[in-house]
Design a protein around this nucleic acid. Sequence first.
DNA 1: AAAATATGTCAGCTTCGTTGACACATTTTT
DNA 2: AAAAATGTGTCAACGAAGCTGACATATTTT
Lengths: 160, 160
Amino acid sequence: MPRQMSQNAAKIELLETPMQNAGSVDFEVIELLFFAYRDFVSDPDQILVKSGFGRAHHRVVHFVNREPGMTVADLLETLQITKQSLARVLKQLIDSGYIRQVAGPEDRRQRKLYPTRAGRDLALALAEPQSRRIERAFEGASEATRESVKRFLRGMQTEK
Amino acid sequence: MPRQMSQNAAKIELLETPMQNAGSVDFEVIELLFFAYRDFVSDPDQILVKSGFGRAHHRVVHFVNREPGMTVADLLETLQITKQSLARVLKQLIDSGYIRQVAGPEDRRQRKLYPTRAGRDLALALAEPQSRRIERAFEGASEATRESVKRFLRGMQTEK
DNA sequence: AAAATATGTCAGCTTCGTTGACACATTTTT
DNA sequence: AAAAATGTGTCAACGAAGCTGACATATTTT
């Protein structure tokens, strides 16, 4: 009996069956998102190593280019990181001449952020391979299908 | 004349216009993917802090549950990280009783990985909020639309 | 018997996030 | 005018998770 029990205990502890889609849990899409994003960010990573920057720099340079004049607070809100964390990469981008700061015209405590020409060029270079990947993934898709995908991605966001 | 030139130089360096969709570069979808993934991984993060684990543990426990019996090499291939990086989190998961190793029956150098009951429960708990988020994003979508989204996500992957 | 393979481990390093505390200039409130 | 709140910067310490390089061990293949 003790022997039997220990055999059972050992068996119970080792699950050999795959965890599969069941009870509304969608493992397939979970994994598709993981792999899609993994490869999506791998493109710019290759460019970034050359300039000595990382993913954090990429995000900053991207959003500042998308919305020139945004403040440091805007950027923190967008990236959802702390100002200490942002400070490092932002400083490097400013020192390297990709981004510039201008005191806010109304509120002079603010630091409005603008890309330089080099900053714009970098952002474009980083976006290009990602955009090519997106276009490839959409290949042959109708406008309606593209809209459906965008709606899905919007729906994935936490509504603020 | 020198004064004029320096004014121009200063102006050229500061771009005030937003970088917008142009020339096949799809900034909109780039950002949708960023925000979608940022919020998608924020769900399990909250659960993980309680158990003292991180995202790396999440990925390991997920894939081992999805494919029990996978080897360490399989996992490295899936996660695209180095074995030294995997070693830490895997060791912690084994020590904590979430995953077990079994020497391969054919090739005894291999370490086949299996979840314990606790490991399965953890994987399910982590997948649940993500799955709810996915279901919400798909709300009202037809089966055809869901397939379109999946096709898009598959298309985003680098084909190996 | 030698070479290749699968895994583990040591040591050190990098990036990028965190918390906490405090300084400074500026704006808002009292 | 004084006090409080706000936007930003910075110092210091720390943690998670990746990396490279080197080497050890067991096992399988050649």
